[in-house]
Structure formats: C-alpha cells, structure tokens
Amino acid sequence: MAGEVKYRVEHWPEFLGTDFITILWLTLRVSGTSVLLSSLVGIPLGTWLGLSCGRPVPLLRLLVQTGMALPPVVVGLVLYILLSRSGPLAWLGWLFTPQAMVVAQFILALPFVIGITQSAVAAMPGELRMQLLSLGATQWQIRQTVLWEARQGVLLAVAAAFGRSLSEVGAVLMVGGNIQGHTRVLTTAVVLETGKGQFGVALALGATLLCLALLANALIVRLHGSPPLYE
C-alpha cells in the first residue's frame, strides 16, 4: 500500500506537466468540436424527425436508434480504411490527426443528438403544434418554438453526445494513433498508462475525465433555467 502511494506521488509532477495540459486541451478541443458539429447537424435533424409522421420516419428512427449502439471500434476500423493511404479519402491526409478523431467522435455522437432530440420533440403535446399553427406561426416558427419548449431534452442530447465523445477510446485510438503531443487524449492516455503499469497516473487521468463530465453536466443543468412546461 505504502509503495503504491509513493509511486503515485512520484509521478504527480510528471502528470501535471506540460504533457498533461496538452492532453487535456486536445481532449476538450476534439470532444468540443465533435459535439458542436453533431449538435449543429443533429438538432435540426432530430427536430424534423420528431415532428414528421411520413412513411420513412419509423425506419429512420430505427436507424438512428441502431446508430446509438454503433461499436466505436467498427467506426474506427471503417474510418481507418477510408483514410488510410490506399483508401478513397487518403487525399485528405487526416489519418493520425485530430481531424480524424473529430470525425470519428462526430459519427458516434450524432445518433445520440438526433435520437434524444427527436424523443424530446415528439414528447411535446400534439396540440401544441396545432395551437401554434392556429396562432399564425409558419412551419419554421413552429419548429423554433417546439425546439425551445423541448430544450431540456435537447440539452440532455448535447450532454449525452459530450459524454459519448469524452469517454470514447476505440475509434480515436485507431484513427488518431495516440501520438504524444499530437493525438493523445485523456482516454488513450489512460490506456497507455495502464499498459505501462502506471495505475496511479491512469487513475488520475480517469478522475480528470470524470471531473470534465461533471463540469459539463453542471453547466448544462445551469443552462436548463426554469423547467419547461411540458415535463
């Protein structure tokens, strides 16, 4: 026990050094960008899906729900093949770059944003839409208002997407390569430190991940403001 404590203490200065700051910053940059992109694409799509009732809608909802269970390693593998030197997207030169990691996380987070937004919007009373229409709202104004009323669920979608991005390891490891100072993020660093047997550092990095998730969720809870009418 005493040995383990000594071991952890010895590595604190290294853990808190510039490498840690680089890892933390890249984690926030990659996860933040992927969540921003998936929200920009996913919230309008989820709203449309939540308000639509056409024939392809049930199939699309099924596909989105399946997307939530997408295995990260499969996403990583497909993306790796596409971006590799012999792949069709090799010309982008994104393999083993943060851009590839953003794309991987975007693909994994997008179904969460669409699916949860769709559920939140579809949970609004059906009469709300008719009431807005009868008050003279255009389809665009109806979407805006319904989205605002469903904001609690939409924020939950963003939080879930951030959690998914932050905790993802398989895909970013495959397409990022875990290169020190370039593509190493908190999750891949945890894998590396665990492999090296440096459990203290790995645990500290894991705790940092948890703290980030906590801070993000606290921010989202604060953004909720007053609860919407329809709960």
């Binding site: 009469e127 008719m130 003279g136 255009t138 208002t145 605002w148 609860p227 009418l229």
Partner: peptide, 19 residues
C-alpha cells in the same frame, strides 16, 4: 394562405401554453 390564417384563431379545450 398565411394572411387568411391570421384571420382565424382557435382556442383549445385544454389550454396549450408555452413556458
């Protein structure tokens, strides 16, 4: 048409209010 819609308003049995 929008201009016609603006001339008609419906009040629902169950009040549908916004937050």
């Amino acid at each position: 048409p929008r201009e016609t819609r603006h001339r008609i308003t419906l009040v629902f049995q169950r009040p549908v209010l916004l937050s």
